[in-house]
């Protein structure tokens, strides 16, 4: 570590590089494991927000949909601050549009975590099919 780095660290301006390495790896592996590139993730984010907006008013700017990973399990985590629920008639219409019998609870949880299948799959060549 150079003296400059040392002073930066003392001043709390710079994280140790090992910590940065871990953070960067966790992010890149979440994407590697789900095989979702940033573009697809952004498209998904927009579509999810569209759907959610049919039910509740949300703050688009604050809405965050990201991949997180722990113990080789990658989850899609959406954190969508809700301003308020839409009036009931609108809710019923939205529910009907997606084929639900009942309108969902307006006190919906704000964060939903969906586990993703995370192991990459190989092209199933007959050769690789069964090693034993």
């Amino acid at each position: 570590m150079t003296l400059f780095d040392f002073i930066q660290r003392l001043l709390g301006r710079q994280k140790p590089s090992g910590t940065m390495a871990k953070e960067r790896l966790q992010l890149v592996l979440a994407h590697d494991r789900s095989d979702l590139n940033p573009e697809l993730l952004e498209q998904m984010r927009r579509e999810i927000l569209e759907v959610v907006q049919r039910y509740v008013e949300i703050d688009i700017e604050e809405g965050d949909v990201s991949l997180e990973t722990e113990d080789r399990v990658t989850a899609l985590v959406a954190n969508l601050p809700i301003k308020r629920a839409r009036p009931l008639p609108a809710l019923v219409a939205a529910a009907a549009a997606v084929g639900m019998a009942q309108a969902p609870d307006p006190e919906a949880p704000q964060e939903l975590a969906l586990p993703l299948a995370c192991e990459p799959t190989e092209d199933p060549s007959p050769a690789a099919a069964d090693p034993v």
Binding site: A21, R24, L25, V28, L29, D32, R33, P120, T121
Partner: peptide, 20 residues
């Protein structure tokens, strides 16, 4: 190191799908 760990992760995924 970041690149070695990332590549290792890739290989682990492949080994898991193969049932090793």
């Amino acid at each position: 190191e970041v690149s070695a760990v990332r590549d290792a992760d890739r290989v682990i995924g492949l080994l898991n799908t193969r049932g090793v």
